[in-house]
Amino acid sequence: MAEFAAEGRRPEILFWVGCAGSYDARAQKIMVAFAKILNEVGIEFAILGNEEGCTGDPARRAGNEFVFQMSALQNIEVLNGYEVQKIVAACPHCFNTLKNEYPALGGNYDVMHHTQLLQQLINEGRLKLQGGGAFEGKKITYHDSCYLGRGNDVYEAPRAVLEALDNELVEMKRSRTKGLCCGAGGAQMFKEEEDGSHRINVERVREVVDTGATILAANCPFCTIMMNDGLKAEEKEEEIMIYDLAELIVNNNQW
């Protein structure tokens, strides 16, 4: 972003990467895939790099409003400083916080989740999916993330993208409004689960297995990490592959 600003230019959209995307090895791949798509369709975008900070979502949900406010207000300073208008986030937690919670703090932007942008690009014909791709006809199931689905009522955009990939979507027993959490939200990602019979990601992975799908599509880096762990715990990591929608598109088009 700083480079654009130095040249006095403004990118079409700001790509908000988020902490998982920045630092987690698995999530980084999703970010690379999404950036590739943006490049391929010729969208001029920027990232904030070290000027981006955690949106504060986990701190806020853990109850630590101070830390949330500090991080959020700093981000808003940066975003307003660059006069950012459009943001696309490849994480539903970042998306939700930027879209729904920053306005009360003085940050008003037009925020999209990356699956929404992908659907839009497909609809506009800017993003063309090659036929006969690796996933055509394959059984695939889709995991609704809580913060995109229930939290913001986005259920169709990701499914529309999957449909465009021409594979056979099998829904899990609990999907859409009833979608089961992966277990990461509410800052659970950063602590051990409380005592119980089994982990939430394992519960969810069992449902994935029940569908008979070989591919699990996700829209959230945290879900991806959690479900990956769950697949390993259930020793299914060989049979079922988990991908973000952006990765599915990149693989399909062999970019």
Binding site: R61, C146, R150, G151, K178, G179, L180, C181, G183, A184, G185, G186, Q188, K191, E193, E194, G196, I200
Partner: peptide, 9 residues
């Protein structure tokens, strides 16, 4: 309260 994932279900 620590067990909640804020999943909104």
């Amino acid at each position: 309260i620590h067990a909640c994932t804020t999943c909104m279900a």
